[in-house]
């Protein structure tokens, strides 16, 4: 089992979990614990089962076997992939952020339908550099602004665990840097546990305290520190291509190796 450092009870834990769809199992025997204050990157090739694992962690999809344990009263904040929102919706950005209050930790199912206050939503928009964007329709924001507004929506719930699905996809470098700095601040200063899915191994190496590597063929799941998992040999097996992991001023840079077995 891979455990995060620290003695605090895990926010969420998988024990002997099988994930998949219907009778089709993608992975079996998964062991994972995520604690407050740590940042876990979930990486692997397309089709490895990252989204299925994410949905199982979020409770949107049942585990096919094993147990998923969430800390009592755990509040999750979720940030989906970009580009999934139909522009026919005319909602103002501040209203989109406020909807994050729905499904809060108290109350029965029918009672969890109250949005957060505009005051709280405005404060988060300001913190994320969107001070004047609240009244604008969400659909009119740029991709990066939409991403930050969706993070504000997840944060307005004051989550214990923040889950981000490809948070920096399509972002320019400064926006990516600012976003990951915010995520790091949430984890270190506020003790929020963070899980983010990414295809960018260098990003994972720079920003995660641990990494979960997944592959489908053959089915494999490993959780460990960046240094232990991000090696050329291991990544080469995972992606079926020769991979280079280089140290660039203390930060790992991962790329497909040139030459035989690597980049064409």
């Amino acid at each position: 089992m891979s455990q995060a450092p620290g003695a605090a009870a895990p926010l969420i834990a998988l024990h002997g979990v099988a994930i998949g769809h219907g009778r089709r199992r993608l992975h079996e025997g998964l062991e994972l614990e995520v604690r407050g204050g740590e940042t876990l990157a979930l990486v692997g090739p397309n089709g490895a089962g990252k989204s299925t694992l994410l949905h199982t962690l979020l409770g949107m999809q049942p585990a096919l076997a094993g147990t998923v344990t969430r800390r009592a009263g755990l509040t999750l904040g979720f940030v989906p992939q970009r580009g999934r929102h139909d522009p026919i919706f005319p909602l103002r950005t501040i209203d989109v952020v406020a909807t994050g209050g729905m499904g809060a930790r108290t109350g029965a199912g029918w009672l969890k339908l109250t949005a957060a206050s505009h005051h709280d939503a405005s404060a988060l928009l300001a913190e994320l550099g969107l001070t004047d964007q609240g009244p604008r329709p969400f659909r009119d924001l740029s991709g990066g602004q939409q991403r930050r507004a969706l993070i504000a929506r997840a944060l307005v719930r004051r989550p214990d665990l923040l889950v981000l699905d490809e948070p920096t996809a399509g972002m320019d470098l400064p926006s990516e840097h600012d976003l990951m700095a915010l995520v790091a601040r949430l984890a270190s200063a506020h003790g929020v546990g963070v899980i983010f899915v990414t295809h960018d191994l260098s990003l994972a190496a720079r920003n995660a305290s641990r990494i979960a590597l997944m592959s489908r063929e053959p089915p494999a799941f490993a959780v460990d520190t960046v240094e232990a998992l991000l090696t050329g040999e291991r990544l080469g097996r995972l992606y079926g291509r020769a991979m280079d992991v280089q140290d660039a001023g203390g930060a790992a840079v991962v790329r497909v190796a040139a030459g035989p077995g690597g980049a064409p």
Binding site: R84, F89, V96, T99, M102, A104, A115
Partner: peptide, 17 residues
């Protein structure tokens, strides 16, 4: 109604019925 149609995936993840 509008929030759950706007982003059903997130609504479900957040515990909205």
């Amino acid at each position: 109604f509008v929030a759950s149609a706007f982003d059903p995936e997130t609504a479900r993840a957040h515990g909205v019925p």
